[in-house]
Computed example of a mutant assay.
Amino acid sequence: MELVTPEIGLVFWTTISFLILLFLLRKFAWKPILGAVAERENTITKALLQAEAAKEEMARLTSENENLLKQARAERDAILSDANKVKNQIINTAKEAAQKEGARQIEIARIEINNQKSIAMADIKNQVASLSLEIAEKVLRKQFEDQKKQDELVKDLLRDVKLS
């Protein structure tokens, strides 16, 4: 029961011990502890500020990346559009060149056909003329075998000449 109702000496020495402990703690422990707590608080505050700055930097970089992606997409679209235009232009140019070349080839073929036709017609005319002369020669030889027929022919020709 002594603890429940302590004597005055115990209370005195306990108080003195507590005050000495409080003084020693204040003198040697609280300053370093409070300094460490303040330093830790500063470190945490700096870390939070750095985290916030890193978050803002990430947002800025993300925004820049999105802008760069938009620009890259726009450039890609422009390049593809230009490539399609060039492709269509090349195709149209090739079509026009092919049509011109085809028309030129057709014209050359037409001229060649006409030349060959003219040559063939001249050859046929020569052959017909040659055959006609041969036939006429044979007919005239047959007719002129007889002198009487020759005289009649000359008379007919003279009559025709006089009449004309």
Rank of each mutant, 00 (worst) to 15 (best):
Ala103Cys: 09
Arg26Gly: 14
Leu25Ser: 12
Glu41Asp: 15
Leu10Pro: 04
Trp30Leu: 14
Ser81Asn: 12
Ile33Glu: 01
Leu61Val: 06
Gln116Arg: 05
Lys100Leu: 13
Lys138His: 01
Val86Lys: 06
Arg73Tyr: 06
Lys142Ile: 01
Ile106Arg: 15
Ala120Val: 03
Ala78Tyr: 08
Glu96Asp: 15
Glu57Gly: 02
Leu80Phe: 09
Gln143Leu: 10
Arg76Trp: 05
Glu112Lys: 10
Lys142Ser: 04
Ala53Ser: 00
Ala59Thr: 13
Lys142Gln: 01
Lys148Glu: 03
Leu133Tyr: 12
Asp77Gln: 03
Ile135Pro: 00
Pro6Asp: 00
Leu153Glu: 00
Glu39Asp: 15
Ala36Gly: 06
Leu69Lys: 09
Gln89Val: 04
Glu107Ser: 07
Glu39Ser: 14
Arg40Leu: 05
Gln147Pro: 04
Arg76Gly: 02
Ile111Thr: 08
Asp77Arg: 00
Asp160Ser: 03
Lys70Gln: 13
Arg76Pro: 04
Ala129Val: 12
Glu7Cys: 13
Gln50Pro: 12
Ala122Met: 01
Asn115Ser: 10
Phe23Tyr: 13
Arg76Gln: 12
Leu21Phe: 15
Leu131Tyr: 14
Glu137Lys: 04
Ser164Phe: 11
Ala51Trp: 15
Leu25Val: 11
Ser63Gln: 14
Ile33Asp: 03
Ala122Asn: 05
Glu145Gly: 01
Ser132Trp: 07
Ile20Cys: 08
Leu25Trp: 13
Asn115Gly: 09
Gln50Arg: 02
Arg40Gly: 07
Ile124Gly: 03
Ala98His: 00
Ile33Leu: 11
Asn115Val: 10
Pro32Lys: 11
Leu49Asp: 09
Glu137Gly: 08
Lys138Ile: 02
Ser118Met: 06
Lys70Ala: 14
Ala120Gly: 00
Leu80Lys: 12
Leu158Glu: 14
Glu101Lys: 05
Leu21Glu: 07
Ala109Cys: 05
Leu140Gly: 02
Ala36Trp: 11
Asn42Thr: 12
Gln71Leu: 08
Ala53Lys: 01
Leu153Val: 05
Arg40Phe: 06
Lys100Val: 12
Glu52Ser: 04
Gly102Met: 10
Ala103Gly: 08
Lys31Arg: 11
Trp13Gly: 09
Arg104Asp: 08
Lys149Cys: 02
Lys138Ser: 04
Val128Arg: 15
Ile33Tyr: 06
Glu101Gln: 08
Leu131Ala: 15
Val139Lys: 01
Phe12Trp: 13
Ala122His: 04
Arg159His: 06
Lys87Tyr: 06
Ala120Tyr: 01
Glu134Trp: 10
Lys117Phe: 06
Phe12Tyr: 14
Phe144Ile: 02
Asp146Ala: 08
Ile119Val: 00
Gln105Pro: 00
Asp151Phe: 04
Lys85Tyr: 01
Lys46Pro: 07
Ile20Trp: 08
Asn126Tyr: 05
Arg104Val: 10
Lys87Cys: 04
Phe28Gln: 13
Lys162Ile: 08
Asn115Arg: 11
Val128His: 14
Lys70Ile: 10
Leu3Lys: 03
Arg60Cys: 15
Thr5Tyr: 13
Ala54Glu: 14
Glu66Ile: 03
